[in-house]
Design a protein around this nucleic acid. Structure first.
Lengths: 218, 218
DNA sequence: ATTTATTTTTAGACAAGTCTAAAAATAATA
DNA sequence: TATTATTTTTAGACTTGTCTAAAAATAAAT
């Protein structure tokens, strides 16, 4: 049985591996708001358990075993977030901290029953894919709307940092994270995008398109 | 913020206070499967926090503050048990260990939303009353069926220790914990009880009545 | 009312997970 | 490449919650 702390580290390394090739001790420390010396200790422990490949001064990477554990925690996190939003009426921006706690509850059966209860969702309220029981997760590509070609589709997953005002605009337009978006036309003159969301045609300025994050499957 | 351990101790003392007048260090140790020396340490800590009245060698009792915390944990425990049984399809005998974990999740809003989602239940799947947000809990009297008078009612809450076979009998008769039971008639000859459960008349031998636990409101 | 048994507390140790401060290794720069 | 800066590790300390073993207090019994 793994401790909550161990699980947090494995999850952190998993997320960091999405964005960077080699995972430094300091990057883990930053991610978890911990001191590098504490991280070194835990990395050794995780290496002893064969959850990571760790070489002094050289960085770390998850082993197959460690990756499976990380994915099972992410699965739990995303299923609980789905529960909190779909069933308990939380907003998608309120659920992270609660799910951080719930993801550590130990019970295989609990999470499989929860999965069924939620209708075996494929994506969580933020539009992120939910790994299956075996640790399989859909590969997604993070893109900006402005990068999409005509007729291409994606799922809205967020906005770039520092553009909270865009969020409230989307909210006003009744556009939620997880909504599907398709490019219909791009005006050459000013880069305006004409897109379709929820069967509605909408016009987005180039600036909006440069700040709207999507995930695509290609 | 209280630790999981502190919450476990407070809950233990609360439960022990239901059954005994004065709470000894050893009884807490037995209840929690811990060594008395460990309990002494924690009792001091809880006393420092004004959660219990503790006097060396004299025993402990919850303060008002401590009792409120214990009741809030019990509220969470029983709401989660209700969720597990009503929504996720667990049996009432499978949920205790999972609820022991869930009860420590920290979020006021979570538990109030869960309460609403479940339809503000008054009793958990074992028939125990759920304290409200303010820590009010319905007072119940634990009785054996054999102690009830004619026309008196109660809720089935369990069986005496060592009578698991009675449980399977009840199960076969489609009688569940939480079902309401009413005494219709008692045969003087052999102490047989004729009772009504779920609008069905049933006959219980005196032995059954001596082992069936109820809660009554009188 | 002594002695014996039981309960409770104290004292000291240990594991997990964190920290600070200093040393060692690696990377960057002049 | 020698020096400086940065990163990472080591060493030692602290906290929480547990344990064992021994001492002290209380309760039971002869």
């Amino acid at each position: 049985m793994n401790s909550q702390s161990e699980e947090d580290y494995l999850k952190a390394i998993y997320h960091l591996e999405m964005d960077y090739d080699s995972i430094s001790t300091n990057s883990v420390a930053d991610y978890l708001n911990m001191k590098p010396s504490s991280v070194t200790d835990m990395l050794k422990k995780l290496a002893d358990k064969k959850y990571i490949n760790y070489q002094k001064y050289k960085g770390s990477s998850l082993t197959k075993k460690g990756k499976l554990i990380a994915l099972s925690i992410i699965r739990k996190h995303r299923l609980w977030e789905t529960f909190l939003v779909d069933k308990l009426g939380f907003g998608w921006d309120q659920v992270h901290l609660i799910a951080e706690q719930l993801e550590h509850i130990k019970s295989e059966e609990l999470i499989e029953n929860l999965d069924d209860f939620l209708g075996n969702p494929k994506y969580d309220p933020h539009g992120d894919p939910i790994p299956n029981k075996e640790g399989k997760i859909e590969k997604m590509n993070q893109k900006l709307l402005v990068e999409l070609k005509i007729q291409q589709e994606g799922i809205i997953t967020g906005v770039k940092k520092g553009t909270a005002s865009l969020l409230s605009y989307l909210d006003k337009e009744k556009i939620k994270l997880g909504d599907s978006i398709k490019v219909i036309e791009v005006l050459e003159f000013d880069g305006t995008f004409i897109v379709e969301i929820n069967n509605r045609k909408l016009t987005f300025s180039e600036k909006i398109c440069q700040n709207l994050l999507l995930e695509t499957y290609d």
